[in-house]
């Protein structure tokens, strides 16, 4: 089935369908993460003894990962801007860099999880560890999801450029919106879990 209005805006909404679609999806994502943040507040307010994140978790590692994610946000914009200016090879290069930054984030996260497990810190250890693994785990799954999409657009998905360059450019803009949202969630997760 062909989805209409992927290049030309739909007259009544003034938007391409994919853009409205991703924003509706992101609105639902706000509620998904919102529910978990709300749970975090409930657990923290009611706990007798809540640890300061930095005494258990590594702030430098998480700060590094914050920089990685923010950088990947700018590279996905550069990918879109390059495609907008008609440069496919540069666009694909930036898509690849974004993917690699996502991979870096996940490797660092895996290292972090591993260190925690080595110290016997599993989700069952405490309420703090439980909400830490739940929040970062769900966020990590989102990073992984984005990486799969970037891998596709860098590889087989890029074929679309030959026949429908504008459509392909819009696809990168849409996955970019999702990627920025994942970055945005991390911007809150970092201070909430590691610093406070």
């Amino acid at each position: 089935m062909l989805i209409p209005y992927t290049v030309k805006p739909r007259p009544d909404t003034g938007l391409i369908n994919s853009k409205l679609g991703i924003w509706l999806f992101l609105a639902s994502e706000v509620m998904l993460f919102g529910a978990l943040f709300s749970s975090y507040i409930l657990l923290r307010v009611n706990s007798v003894d809540w640890p300061v994140g930095s005494t258990i978790l590594s702030v430098p590692i998480a700060a590094f990962n914050t920089v990685v994610l923010i950088s990947s946000s700018i590279t996905v914009i550069m990918a879109w801007a390059s495609l907008k200016m008609g440069n496919l090879s540069k666009g694909r290069m930036y898509i690849l860099i974004t993917f690699l930054l996502g991979l870096t984030f996940m490797c660092v996260k895996a290292y972090e999880y591993n260190t925690k497990f080595h110290h016997g810190l599993f989700p069952s250890e405490s309420t703090f560890m439980a909400i830490y693994f739940t929040l970062t785990g769900l966020h990590g799954l989102h990073v992984l999801g984005g990486m799969i999409v970037f891998a596709y657009f860098w590889g087989p998905g890029a074929k679309m450029w030959k026949t429908e360059p504008e459509h392909f450019t819009n696809r990168i803009e849409i996955v970019g919106l999702y990627w920025h949202f994942v970055d945005l969630v991390w911007i809150f997760l970092f201070p909430v879990l590691y610093l406070l």
């Binding site: 909404t13 003034g14 938007l15 919102g34 709300s38 507040i41 409930l42 307010v45």
Partner: peptide, 23 residues
Amino acid sequence: EKKLIYYTLLIAALFFIGLMFLP
């Protein structure tokens, strides 16, 4: 951005604020 996206996000924001005060 277009108005329709602002409206969508406004609804999400209202529910989000509600969620934050739920505890």
